[in-house]
Computed example of a mutant assay.
Amino acid sequence: MVATPISASSRYIPPGTRQYYFVASIANKNAPTRGELDAGTDLTGEVADVSGFQTTSESADTPDLGSRFTSKIPGRITADDSSITMYASEDSQDVRQLLPRDTPGFVVQFPEGDETGKTMDVFPVKVASAPKMTDIEDPAKIEVQFTITGEPAEDVAVPS
């Protein structure tokens, strides 16, 4: 008997596909409405870099006297420190107006784009800080740092 192979993937790179929205209010993070998403701000065109916005699970040891082997079970789920680095504008009219420190809301990540039937991840967040990056050779940027304030809703269907 031969195992059934996994379906072949349609591979892609994130630029030109992945999108990020900031949405101030979502009633149910497990089922955002199209109206809620459309009321948000599409950050995609100003994003220079993204870090985090993923969950990881710790492991918990489960030793017993029946064996010298220590088995493990999945433990607590955490979200990595997360940030979105965006371009700064010389007139200061940029992400600083939208996301000052302590702004609550949701970062919605569309890995394969904002298209009905695809999936998105919804992260409840609060802006921790938005420092201006100090590199003098690269374009001016602002790194918006977020705390993840609740369990993210992952692989949620994008509504029509």
Rank of each mutant, 00 (worst) to 15 (best):
L65I: 07
L65H: 05
L65Q: 09
G66K: 07
S67C: 06
S67R: 12
F69H: 10
T70L: 06
T70Q: 08
T70D: 09
T70V: 11
S71T: 12
S71V: 07
P74S: 03
P74V: 08
G75P: 04
D81G: 03
S83K: 00
S83R: 05
I84Y: 00
I84S: 04
T85I: 08
M86P: 06
M86W: 07
M86T: 03
Y87C: 09
Y87S: 11
Y87V: 15
A88I: 11
A88V: 15
A88T: 15
E90N: 13
E90P: 09
D91C: 11
D91Q: 14
Q93A: 14
D94Y: 03
R96E: 09
R96C: 04
Q97H: 13
Q97W: 12
Q97F: 13
L98E: 02
L98N: 01
L99P: 02
P100N: 07
P100G: 07
D102P: 00
D102L: 06
T103N: 11
P104H: 07
P104I: 04
P104W: 05
V108C: 06
Q109F: 05
F110E: 01
F110H: 00
P111Q: 09
E112A: 10
D114I: 05
T116W: 12
M120N: 04
D121V: 04
V122D: 05
V122L: 05
V122E: 00
V122C: 00
V122T: 01
F123A: 05
F123P: 02
K126R: 15
V127K: 13
V127F: 11
A130L: 14
K132V: 15
K132Y: 14
T134V: 12
D135E: 15
I136A: 14
I136L: 13
I136K: 13
